[in-house]
């Protein structure tokens, strides 16, 4: 095992860095998409609602892998050619964003009625009401489910290896292919994913939850 890490540690680290980059970029895409679609589904304008609903249903109703292949192999036929790295995090982000949209929508709806009315009584514009009163409160409600979703997102990034992005999964597969050290290669990758999830993402989200709660005076 020690030998294995000495020989392949460098490549594994590179792969992990790519996984980290995919994770960060996909998270950004997911947040934007979730916010846009979540708000879109609550819009007063039906075309906006329809567009948001279509996005959510399509991306939740099909598989991430299908979406990934479609974006990477089929989109070019429509004149949109994306490099594999971009296609990777974009697919993962859009997929997770569709689930995130439901979280955004649900948490906005669970901000108490009285808050909406209070903002209304102050004759705030709808935009201001959303931005200054509703969203900050909804944000606190969203955080715990987003914590779980980000773990799913991290796991989802492993699929980008299948279109050739050289992430952790890809490196593990390569090492397995060339050395047949399957247990070491895949086992190490599993442990790294676990650590990323439980040592980085989960505690970071907890800290964020606590600090948000404090800022809203709820702690």
């Amino acid at each position: 095992m020690w030998d294995f890490l000495q020989t392949y540690g460098g490549r594994i680290a590179e792969g992990t860095a790519v996984t980290g980059a995919q994770f960060g970029l996909a998270t950004a895409v997911a947040l934007l998409a979730a916010l846009a679609a979540g708000l879109g589904r609550l819009s007063d304008h039906w075309p906006v609602r329809a567009a948001a609903t279509t996005y959510v249903e399509i991306f939740r109703g099909t598989s991430l892998l299908v979406q990934l292949y479609w974006i990477f192999y089929v989109l070019p036929l429509f004149g949109i050619s994306l490099p594999k790295f971009t296609a990777g995090f974009l697919s993962v982000g859009l997929n997770v964003g569709a689930y995130g949209a439901e979280i955004v929508r649900g948490s906005i709806l669970s901000v108490p009625r009285g808050q909406w009315e209070a903002a209304y009584a102050l004759s705030m514009s709808p935009l201001k009401r959303m931005r200054r009163i509703i969203l900050p409160q909804a944000f606190v409600l969203m955080l715990p489910p987003w914590g779980n979703l980000l773990i799913e997102l991290l796991k989802g990034t492993a699929l980008v290896a299948l279109i050739g992005v050289a992430d952790l999964m890809f490196v593990a597969k390569q090492i397995n292919g060339s050395t047949f050290l399957s247990a070491e290669a895949f086992g190490t990758a599993l442990v790294i994913y676990y650590l990323l999830a439980r040592v980085l993402i989960t505690p970071a989200m907890r800290r964020l939850e606590r600090s948000m709660a404090r800022r809203l005076g709820r702690a």
């Binding site: 773990i151 989802g156 290896a161 999964m169 593990a172 597969k173 399957s182 086992g187």
Partner: peptide, 22 residues
């Protein structure tokens, strides 16, 4: 179970498929 939930299914598929024979 926490470990299983936190790691990618695709990697678990590879793991079981390739490590089984070993």
């Amino acid at each position: 179970l926490e470990f299983v939930r936190s790691t990618p299914l695709v990697l678990q598929i590879f793991f079981i498929f390739y490590v089984g024979p070993q």
